[in-house]
């Protein structure tokens, strides 16, 4: 290398585009072309352009120490981006040191800073593979998270559908059971949480069978849909309205404990449902019978028992002549 410097520097540059060759004094003998792009004017001297990245600040002292102790070399690029070069160095002859540097994980910053291209890296380096892997991973991850979002979305839709009555858009029996379990939990379970009382309403249409028999099932379905709309309009957002089968509906009314208010609500619902009576039923009027139970802080009862109690109240309304509500504390 010392015999014919001109040739060796050129071949060195070709072989090791990130090399730095310097005299012990710090005088720079040769800088690889890629290193020159990343740290411009490095051949003018290391001072102010590089510094030790692990404690020592004087770059030449840092390099000398690393070479003499056979340690890894870490050098911070002074201007601009937060860039640390790493590498190692050897003595090639008395009084000079040859270092080969690389970017490590900071390669993206180096590329951005110096606008590096494929040609700036030695073929033996894994720079291109690292960049490839980085972008490929990002692409695959983006796709995977898209898959995930889609799955989560489908799951939400499926859950909602599983709890919805397709005819009326109200909850179905499964939805009601979940809502009732929730209401019971907030009414009793946690001792430190103030229980939220609620009213459970069981509603059954009067003379629905005749609508089906006389006017056909289409008229029956239309009526059920209209009743669904009435119930939806009469409950608040925090309440639940469900159709649990045939012409049976259930409401869970959160915080409703006033018998007077419930009576009034029942009256509004019955009036609205009477108004839905389709023409062609003769003397018959469609109406509704309601059984209401008020669940305050006590309920140790299971959902099934509560529903059975509401059902009992409903049958009392039927016995009383239909088209009315029975409310039990």
């Amino acid at each position: 290398m010392t015999k014919d410097n001109a040739v060796s520097v050129a071949t060195l540059a070709q072989l090791m585009p990130m090399h730095l060759w310097l005299a012990d004094s710090g005088r720079v003998l040769s800088v690889g072309p890629t290193l020159d792009k990343v740290v411009p004017d490095l051949d003018q001297g290391l001072e102010g352009r590089l510094s030790g990245a692990r404690g020592g600040v004087d770059p030449v002292a840092e390099i000398t120490s690393a070479v003499d102790h056979n340690r890894r070399l870490f050098l911070r690029v002074s201007c601009g981006a937060d860039l640390v070069l790493r590498g190692h160095g050897v003595r090639v002859d008395a009084g000079t040191m040859l270092c080969n540097l690389g970017f490590g994980i900071g390669i993206h910053r180096a590329i951005r800073k110096a606008g590096l291209t494929d040609g700036d890296f030695a073929p033996s380096e894994l720079a291109m593979e690292l960049l490839f892997l980085h972008e490929a991973n990002r692409g695959v991850l983006t796709e995977l998270s898209r898959f995930n979002d889609q799955l989560a979305q489908s799951r939400r839709v499926a859950l909602l559908q599983a709890q919805t009555d397709p005819l009326t858009g109200l909850s179905n029996r499964r939805g009601l059971e979940m809502a009732l379990a929730m209401a019971l939990r907030s009414a009793g379970d946690a001792p430190d949480v103030k229980p939220v009382p609620f009213a459970l309403v069981h509603l059954d249409l009067d003379h629905f069978k005749q609508v089906n028999d006389i006017l056909g099932h289409k008229a029956g379905d239309d009526l059920l849909q209209a009743v669904g709309a009435v119930l939806r309009s009469q409950v608040r957002k925090a309440d639940t309205a469900a159709r649990i089968g045939g012409d049976e509906f259930v409401l869970i009314l959160s915080g409703m404990t006033s018998a007077a208010a419930l009576n009034e609500l029942a009256g509004r619902i019955i009036a609205a449902i009477r108004a839905l009576t389709p023409p062609g039923l003769g003397q018959l009027r469609v109406s509704a019978s309601l059984g209401v139970i008020i669940c305050t802080d006590k309920p140790a009862d299971s959902p099934e028992i509560l529903l059975a109690q509401a059902d009992e109240a409903l049958y009392e309304s039927k016995r009383k002549g239909r088209g009315c509500a029975t409310i039990r504390q």
């Binding site: 993206h108 590329i111 291209t117 960049l131 990002r138 692409g139």
Partner: peptide, 13 residues
């Protein structure tokens, strides 16, 4: 083609 690419990249497809 430049190595650094754009910072805003769309999905793989």
């Amino acid at each position: 083609f430049c190595l650094q690419g754009s910072t805003l990249q769309g999905p793989a497809v």
